[in-house]
Design a protein around this nucleic acid. Structure first.
Length: 501
RNA sequence: GCGGGCAUAGUGUAGUCUGGUUAUCACAUAGGCUUGCCAAGCCUAUAACCCGGGUUCAAAUCCCGGUGCCCGCACCA
């Protein structure tokens, strides 16, 4: 489905719509409706079960969304989260200052003010890379963070967090004591991050307020033991830098063992890459042949990342592979910067007596992007019917309960709906229209199971208190006792989780 | 940010060029009749010209500004 059509469907069904619509909308902001909010919540729950579920020493916290200026100065966001831009007055093309100046100033423009950049442009007679004109504008400096006054004096500055990870770094010292004073230690955050994007576009793929799920694993660089044998034979669809520079865009299947042995990647990194891949393939159920692990080159990744693979999924609506998650080996950059910035030594003493500044492995996941991808991948047309083949444990409404005939079976069906709800089976009751139309409605919102109360349910005899259970994907029906429903449904509604190391 | 295109019920649309009756049609939604396990049929109802200004006797239609969406460029620590 193209993105327009998909978005129209999601709007109509109450999954998602533009924010502040009655005022004409606000760029880069979207609201989730009932179905979208429920779906997003289930995706977050599945993520928490899977990633923080990898170890007893991984914790989920909820840090503040507002960062004092000192924090973003230390993290580098204040100076680096900006893009000095130069615009050509002649042809109206615009470029990063760094690009325009790369010949006359190969060391880059970090730390230069817009005025200094303008002076270099005029002194060196730099011309537009596009049309050759000398009519280049003074660069604007634009910080991608939302800043605000903080406190009553208005003198203090603070910023909405541009990524959730900072909260984990800030909490590390406290968590070292709350946890077992051992490495590895994992700190996960699921929450909003904010970026004042220049050109928000492609719906949920570049928003100004978006939800990230990130696990920061702090570890001793000398040793990060992982049960590597449990993943050694997994074959991963990787697209490495060497293969990319040969012009290839399709991934090749390489075993985890080979990636570590001859591929030059540490075992702990490959281990977590496998678990990330499995989450996308086995939990979100994106088809394996639509997933690729895209290695970022030195030039492409942030300077502090030592290894970076983006997890990409091919989306029909957006016409190509899109980044939905990533695995970053960030080294000791974060704790070192915050040690320097705060004056507090964040290195720790291990039980063996050695003192180390932990390194960070970051597993990051874009929640909103995956909500969109789950629609793109699993929402399919079958003739006249539209079916959202979501994994059952992600379905916003997992169960529908219908009376075959409203007049005769409604009372029983309503009671059944209530009973299921109180036993933790979330469901929707519907008696409007023909039964086939109700099934179709539920197919479209991804409900995997529909229960129908009919004449046999109410009759005396062997079928008393039995109902039909209809499957969304096969459309097959089975007849079973009402008392067996919960045991039958519950296992399908629990997201998978890995075995703990 | 730049350039181009577009904006009509919940959704998709006709009408705009060439200003003029009660703004077209389909689907969806709600109610009724009928039917009773996969979007059936009939009747009825709800519901729209993105926002602001201008031109005109008269604006969905022409002009200006804004907002939003799409495409390309640029950007995405």
């Amino acid at each position: 489905m193209k993105s327009d059509e998909l978005f129209a469907l999601l709007r109509r069904r109450g999954v998602l719509w533009p924010s502040a619509e009655i005022y004409g909308g606000a760029q880069g902001l979207y609201d989730y409706g009932p179905l979208g909010a429920a779906l997003k919540r289930r995706v977050e729950e599945a993520w928490v079960a899977w990633f923080p579920g990898l170890s007893h020493d991984y914790y989920v916290i909820e840090p503040a969304e507002i960062l004092p200026e000192a924090v973003v100065r230390a993290s580098g966001h204040l100076e680096n989260f900006t893009d000095p831009e130069i615009t050509c007055e002649q042809c109206h093309a615009s470029f990063r200052a760094e690009t325009v100046l790369e010949k006359v100033r190969p060391e880059g423009v970090d730390g230069l003010s817009p005025t200094q950049i303008a002076e270099i442009v005029s002194a060196r007679q730099v011309r537009c890379p596009n049309c050759g004109s000398a009519a280049l504008s003074v660069p604007r400096s634009f910080n991608l963070m939302f800043g605000m006054d903080f406190g009553v004096t208005g003198k203090e500055r603070a910023y909405l967090r541009p990524e959730t990870a900072q909260g984990s770094y800030l909490s590390f010292a406290r968590m070292w004591d709350v946890g077992r004073r051992a490495l590895p230690l994992g700190i996960a955050v699921v929450g909003k991050a904010y970026r004042n994007e220049i050109a928000p576009r492609q719906l949920l793929f570049r928003m100004r307020a978006f939800t990230q799920a990130e696990l920061q694993i702090f570890f001793d660089p000398a040793t990060f033991p992982v049960p590597f044998d449990s993943v050694r034979d997994e074959r991963l669809p990787v697209l490495r830098v060497a293969r990319r520079s040969a012009g290839e865009e399709s991934p090749e299947l390489v075993s985890a063992g080979d990636l570590a042995a001859s591929g030059g990647l540490p075992e702990f990194y490959v281990f977590h890459l496998v678990h990330s891949f499995r989450f996308f393939r086995d939990v979100l159920r994106y088809p394996a042949d639509r997933i690729r692990l895209f290695e970022k080159s030195d030039a492409e990744r942030a300077f502090y990342n030592r290894i970076q693979f983006d997890i990409e999924v091919r989306l029909e609506s957006l016409g190509g592979f899109k980044e939905l998650g990533a695995v970053h080996y960030r080294g000791d950059y974060d704790l070192r910067r915050h040690s320097e910035g705060s004056g507090r030594d964040l290195s720790v003493t291990l039980s063996a007596g050695t003192k180390v500044l932990p390194h960070v492995l970051e597993l990051t996941f874009g929640v909103d992007r995956n909500v969109w991808a789950l629609a793109d991948v699993h929402l399919v047309k079958d003739g006249e019917r539209t079916i959202w083949r979501l994994p059952p444990y992600l379905a916003p409404v997992p169960v529908g309960v219908f009376p075959l005939m409203a007049k005769e079976h409604a009372a029983y069906a309503l009671r059944l709906s209530d009973d299921l709800e109180s036993q933790g089976i979330s469901n929707r009751y519907d008696e409007a229209g023909a039964i086939g139309r109700r099934y179709a409605r539920m197919d479209e919102v991804g409900t995997p199971f529909c229960i129908t109360v009919d004449g046999r349910t109410l009759e005396e005899g062997p079928d008393r208190d039995t109902v039909t259970l209809r499957d969304r994907d096969t459309r097959s029906q089975e007849r079973l006792r009402v008392t067996d429903l919960v045991a039958r449904l519950r296992p399908a509604l629990v997201a998978p989780r890995p075995r703990r190391a």
